[in-house]
Write a protein that binds this DNA or RNA. Structure first.
Lengths: 193, 193
DNA sequence: GTCTATAATGTGATAGAC
DNA sequence: GTCTATCACATTATAGAC
């Protein structure tokens, strides 16, 4: 164990890489940039990681874990299914920055390398199933209509958030994101039994 | 005017750039790559365009114009509003490749340069308004519930398609895209008066 | 574990001949 | 209008001292 005042170099590298991947994407994030932000030298980075891709995998895992915790918190918050899903949709932040994870899969280098893509794929698989679970619960409790398709509806919710990011960035306007998530909430409301 | 058998170099450059931007994104598309694919030399490219960004603007405009024609065709096809929107949602192709336009706005270089971003922003503004128009028509004709919000619902439709691309790429599975668009169609169906 | 020096390759762009 | 040669710079990565 080590003290709290200074995180180890390896950790600082992962943290800096995660931030930069979010801000700039994979292609535009150079090792030199990561080194500068983490105050680590060239040698340190190549001591702890085999290269840019290896470090990026660790950073993407960290970002996905963070999003997972945030989603878990929102989906656990309310009492009814619609409250929980509403909390999740309202939780999303910083539409202009894009999604820490979803943003990356548009990058050709990330999709080409299965090591890089896998953490993103696993995150979305988990998220869809988690949301589908909340919806299935709502159906079981008689809150939602029995003809609700939890799997498909979960895809709609996740896709709306991801698409909202795209619209917000394309138009450089947060409102585009909010309009999409508000519409998703209305659509969910119409599933009420 | 010129013959049909050989397109002019300028046109081949724009075409090659549009393809490469779709396949690889902006950052990963180098001028050298565009020159090779269009069979144009270094000199030709810099004669017709001031640089990579200038050529990319022309290419993005071409891609956006193409998507606009495709969307227009689908949204003009059926007789009822729900038929037209269903045709639009079913029209989308090649989810693993991503959207020719939406894909680009995740790139930091594209969003940083207003010249590059504007064509994408304009395309989505147009698309949302066009879809909102179809929805408003459906409300006016008594096909859709009077409490339908055309603007918000249009955002939901466009976001679902863009988000569907993200999910499909993250999981490397077309089905993720289809599930999202099918759910969007179900949601629209519940707006029936 | 961390540093500096250096390599090999590729980038976007320019110059000037034809 | 198109070509080839060349530029200055950044990239990812390695070597070897400390």
């Amino acid at each position: 164990m080590y003290g709290e005042r200074m995180k180890p170099t390896k950790d600082r590298l992962v943290e800096a890489a995660a931030e930069l991947l979010w801000e700039r994407g994979y292609a535009a994030t150079s090792p030199a940039l990561i080194q500068r932000r983490s105050r680590a030298g060239q040698g340190s980075m190549y001591h702890h990681f085999s290269g840019k891709a290896d470090l990026a995998v660790a950073a993407i895992r960290r970002s996905a874990g963070r999003l997972r915790l945030a989603a878990e918190a929102a989906l656990d918050s309310g009492t009814t299914a619609l409250e929980r899903l509403g909390a999740y949709l309202d939780t999303e932040r910083n539409p202009l920055a894009g999604c820490r994870v979803g943003r990356l899969v548009q990058d050709p280098d990330v999709v080409a390398d299965d090591q890089l893509r896998a953490p993103a794929g696993e995150f979305f698989t988990w998220l869809r199933q988690r949301i589908a679970g909340v919806l299935a619960e709502g159906v079981r409790d008689g809150e939602l209509r029995p003809d609700t398709d939890p799997e498909a509806t979960a895809s709609l919710v996740v896709a709306t958030v991801q698409g909202g990011y795209v619209l917000a960035r394309a138009q450089q306007d947060q409102a585009a994101f909010r309009q999409a998530t508000e519409a998703a909430k209305s659509a969910l409301d119409r599933l009420r039994a």
